[in-house]
Simulated assay, not measured.
Amino acid sequence: MEALNRNKTWIITDLPPDRKSIGSKWVYRIKYKSNSEIERYKARLVAKDDIVVTGNNLAEIEKFKTFLKTKFMIKDLGRLKYFLEFEILPNGSGVCMNQRKYCLELQNDYGMLRCKPIGTPIEPNMNVEFLSQYMHSPLQSHFNLAFRILRYLKRAPGKGINIVKSNNFSLCAYSDSDYAKCKLNRKFVTGYLVYFCDSLVSWKSKKQATVLRSSAEAEYRAMTSTASLQLVANPVFHERTKHFEVDVHYIREKVATGIIQTIKVGSAVQLAYILTKGLSVSQHEQLVKQLGLLDLFSSCCVAVDLKAVLVAVDLVLIKL
């Protein structure tokens, strides 16, 4: 309350006669470490107030934090460890963002800590939007799919996004469309992944709001097939595509100016497939590996870390 008053969060005024006052509410919770030990007890208002400060200049970061302390009552929690259910783990190449603790909590809540792992989140050729579009009125089939996803997470709950240090200052995107995938209304599904400096920074899978009349139109929107690449590169074909929405041709202008370069991607390396369609176990594992995901809790990574520790011990013994 002292911090709220100091920051002039509100002003005291008379309540209008046709309005009712809203009381404040404190939320009490326990914050746990990754090994389930209690880290500290927390009490706060409902509003979320955590922020992350990052950069490549430590002096400027300290300067910015000092400035924030002059304006707000803040507490420096040190190196980032948890944020929005993500665990941030440093490694030799950068940091790994994972949700291992959240996955284990879900499996514990539904009694699936000892369930049998499975290789893919959904069955091959299944609609990736099948589960999310029935969240408000799920049937038994949707619950079965949700439990299948928990079985998939059981296989590697600690696998996360590896943000690497890189001098490759470039932007690369993969996109794909699955024409008339939804069996209920034949709307198409699009998916894309964006890499910046060799790290995955953005991704999305979405069932579009309109029904398209051709696969070429759907693929043009997602910039995937050879036909769509020819449409973008050659204005002669545009007479056949007048029914496309005008905003789609924005891409054509960027290609013409050289800002965007379109490249045909083979099925074996089309990473966006993982966001638009159900895949076989082998193809799914291959694409997940190419995504650049990392599991610091796997036996492989533990063995590497143990080897590094043994090397360090040998060096200390030699030095002594």
Rank of each mutant, 00 (worst) to 15 (best):
H238S: 06
F169Q: 11
V255W: 00
C182E: 13
V309P: 01
L84G: 02
T241E: 10
V128I: 15
Q270D: 03
C301Y: 14
D109S: 12
L77V: 03
E85L: 09
I11E: 12
K319Y: 15
H238R: 12
S34L: 01
H136L: 08
K181Y: 06
K206L: 10
H249R: 15
A146F: 14
K48D: 15
Y250I: 08
I74F: 02
F244P: 04
Q230R: 12
A256N: 11
Q270W: 04
A303D: 10
L306V: 09
R44G: 08
A216V: 14
T9P: 00
W10H: 03
D176K: 01
D49K: 12
I12Q: 11
Q208T: 01
N144L: 12
V53A: 06
R148Q: 15
I260H: 05
L45P: 04
A216N: 11
M97H: 07
Q99T: 05
K289Y: 11
F83V: 05
K42C: 07
K69E: 13
Y152V: 02
L320F: 14
F130S: 14
Y220C: 04
L106Y: 05
V53D: 07
A222M: 00
V236R: 12
L84V: 06
S21P: 10
P138Q: 06
R148L: 13
K48I: 11
L150H: 08
R148K: 15
M97P: 02
E285H: 15
Y28C: 09
H243E: 13
V232A: 15
K204P: 05
I263F: 12
D198S: 09
K31N: 04
R240A: 13
Y102W: 04
T276F: 07
A256Y: 08
K254Y: 04
E105G: 09
K242S: 15
L106C: 08
M1V: 11
I163P: 05
G292E: 09
H238D: 11
A43R: 09
R6N: 11
L293A: 00
N162D: 14
N35F: 01
K242E: 15
I161P: 08
W203E: 10
L279H: 09
H238V: 01
G160S: 05
P235A: 04
L231C: 12
V46K: 11
R6F: 10
V246M: 14
L153T: 06
S202G: 03
